[in-house]
């Protein structure tokens, strides 16, 4: 356990040297507050950029606070996932290339601690960035529109975090299996977007799929009630995360032994 914490510390050190602790949280916060701001100031923005003829009246229905919050959450679904993939795609393969893996593994470090410490480091970075970003979004929506109950924010947070952690674990798995960070990014992004597409069109067939979690969050925020399939979907997300992690360790072990 002691050794595991030393490895985790190394991860933190590396993430701060890469400035990941600066740019990942900042990006998530920006993603969170841009939507409430732009939708609130939309009339002024149109006024200042558009050459509309005198007397044009544009009626924009004022969105509700929940709608604005959902809109800013959808940014995490697209750009947030992109940031997660880009910031962690080299998590294992990068160290393999630079030779750090070999330096660490000559010491009595198990494959298990090596992979799980890396995974835990990335998990802490992403989940705390997401927390800050969603909190900022919740706050801005509250100031500009109307404060949603804090329990709504927490409910949205855990379901979103569960979904994004699953994506992160998929990145770790691909990074352990594939040589090039670029290939890792491609494979995960294509997988996630195809799954989203399938999940989006076959909503009834795939009610238990973790890809539905963001959808269920929107439902929770508009109707104030969790849809009934949230629990199996959340359970499956946790199960898949665990399975991906085990697979990552096994694949990594086999690859390192083969070299």
């Amino acid at each position: 356990m002691n050794q595991w914490f030393i490895l985790l510390k190394k991860e933190f050190l590396e993430m701060s040297r890469n400035y990941k602790w600066v740019w990942v949280p900042i990006t998530f916060i920006l993603l969170g507050i841009l939507d409430p701001l732009t939708s609130y100031y939309l009339p002024q923005i149109i006024d200042s950029v558009g050459d509309l003829p005198e007397g044009t009246v544009i009626q924009i229905p004022e969105p509700s606070a929940a709608e604005v919050f959902i809109m800013s959450l959808s940014e995490y679904q697209l750009i947030g996932i992109l940031i997660i993939v880009l910031s962690t795609m080299a998590i294992v393969s990068g160290e393999r290339k630079s030779g750090v893996v070999q330096l660490i593994l000559v010491k009595p470090v198990s494959y298990f601690s090596y992979i799980t410490s890396k995974w835990a480091g990335a998990l802490i970075l992403i989940s705390s960035s997401l927390f800050l970003g969603m909190l900022a979004s919740w706050y801005y929506t509250g100031v500009l529109y109307e404060f949603l109950p804090f329990s709504d924010f927490l409910a949205a947070y855990w379901a979103y975090a569960l979904w994004l952690i699953l994506v992160l674990t998929l990145v770790v798995l691909c990074s352990a299996a594939l040589k090039h960070p670029g290939a890792t990014a491609m494979v995960t992004l294509i997988t996630v977007f195809v799954l989203n597409l399938v999940g989006g069109s076959l909503t009834h067939a795939l009610e238990w799929s973790p890809t539905q979690l963001p959808l269920y969050v929107s439902e929770r925020l508009t109707t104030n009630q969790w849809p009934e399939h949230i629990w199996p979907a959340a359970g499956l997300a946790a199960l898949f995360t665990f399975a991906f992690l085990v697979m990552a360790i096994l694949l990594f072990k086999r690859k390192e032994l083969a070299d």
Partner: peptide, 19 residues
Amino acid sequence: LIAPLIIIQLILMAVALVD
């Protein structure tokens, strides 16, 4: 509300430039 947005953008830019 706008000031924090500008400030964190500037922080991001400054850190990138220093690096």
